[in-house]
Design a protein around this nucleic acid. Structure first.
Lengths: 220, 220
DNA sequence: GCAGATTATGTCAGCCACTGACATTCGGCA
DNA sequence: TGCCGAATGTCAGTGGCTGACATAATCTGC
């Protein structure tokens, strides 16, 4: 929002065009987010969003392929962040441990920012909205499965196996993704808003149950 | 398609109205399926489907909430069948064993029918189409997660636990769903068409890798 | 600074998925 | 046969999304 006092670019300044583009994109996301949360996803038209940022509808669609995408854009950042965390995990950890630690760290880390569309609270609001908006949920799930493909590659590389031969990376990624979503679901079904720490706790509790869930009988 | 010779209904005959409705529904599914596979999902309009069955577009939308739904209708039957199989599993099996056996049986069982939209081959073609059609994949994934909710209830009841307290049913259902989809994905990525037995084998191989994938390091 | 190549944006026309409202027709049933 | 309710058709309209073309804004080499 606030522009720095103009200073000659030292190296690699993005250039006016690029900066302007980024600003428009951010503004669209921000406006969309506000409108969606205020009046609901379905009751918000693309024209409204574009109008709020003072661009044409056509321009909106040059930034986002569809209405879903602008709603999920914030989560895309979060996913990138998770991927970064994962790559940073030490090699001594088992693949499962690394995934688990990376997702927890990713949530904790984002606690830093406190406002704007990319803050944790906004992300949490978003997750709740997604869970109760069928079309968004569908789009989100598709994105998640695409991320899982990336995950498979990272895990396979990390462990030095060939994902075309060895099914473990794919299976692990799938199970991981499933359990993670179960945690999201629990969180969004919960009445009270427990914030990021609540989410982290919930994620931990879910993963703790994975091995017990697969093994033997459960009856006391 | 072929109508039985008219005979006076003994008891509980569905009635002409109901039969007609069912026929229209089946015809719509069949026509949609044929058109989708022939010319692609996106390039088929609802008007075309409705036209092929000689009903109005409006009528189409009274049978199916949207274009996705008619494509996925066949899978819905398959899912119901899986649920039946699961309920029939003996109590001695662990929850995970029961799920695994139920899905394998469900696929085997459908081998009986050999043509029409609800045949196995049709279902397999459908899965491939879904995987390569983003909007269909999204809709499918949403359906699957809804099924997972049902699954949670069944497993919890079976094991006599409270799914609100005990996370194991939710976690198991999520992991199961994830791995199953990984198998679907493998199958649809595969070049050669191995038929239902190939799918069953693939599902087995994936589940076999679940416990190894979660445990320790993989490096030799 | 300036011309010319790029690139972002606006405008417009149009397709298609989907919906509400109302009229009509058809099957079920007394 | 005549009535009721369910199924269907028609029509008009909204909104997501796209292609084509024109215009305006940046960038680039000079």
């Amino acid at each position: 929002m606030a522009a720095q006092p103009a200073s000659p670019a030292p190296v690699q300044e993005p250039g006016l065009r690029a900066r302007k583009k980024q600003r428009t994109r951010d503004a669209l996301i921000e406006a969309a987010h506000r409108l969606f949360l205020g009046q609901g996803f379905a009751r918000t038209t693309v024209d409204e969003i574009a109008g709020a940022v003072d661009v044409s509808q056509r321009t909106f669609f040059r930034y986002f392929a569809n209405k879903d995408e602008v709603a999920l854009a914030v989560l895309a950042e979060a996913e990138d962040h998770f991927i970064q965390q994962l790559r940073a995990r030490p090699a001594e950890e088992t693949p499962f441990q690394a995934l688990r630690a990376a997702i927890v760290d990713a949530w904790r880390d984002r606690g830093g920012r406190d406002a704007g569309p990319s803050s944790v609270t906004a992300a949490l609001e978003l997750i709740r909205m997604i869970e109760e908006t069928p079309t968004l949920l569908a789009a989100h799930l598709r994105r998640v499965t695409e991320q899982e493909r990336v995950l498979i590659g990272i895990i396979a590389e990390r462990e030095g196996v060939d994902p075309a031969e060895d099914l473990r990376p794919a299976v692990l990624a799938a199970a991981f993704g499933g359990v993670l979503r179960a945690a999201h679901l629990s969180w969004s079904a919960d009445q009270e808003d427990t914030g990021p720490e609540g989410m982290v706790a919930l994620i931990d509790r879910h993963f703790d149950q994975l091995v017990p869930a697969l093994g033997g009988h459960w009856r006391a």
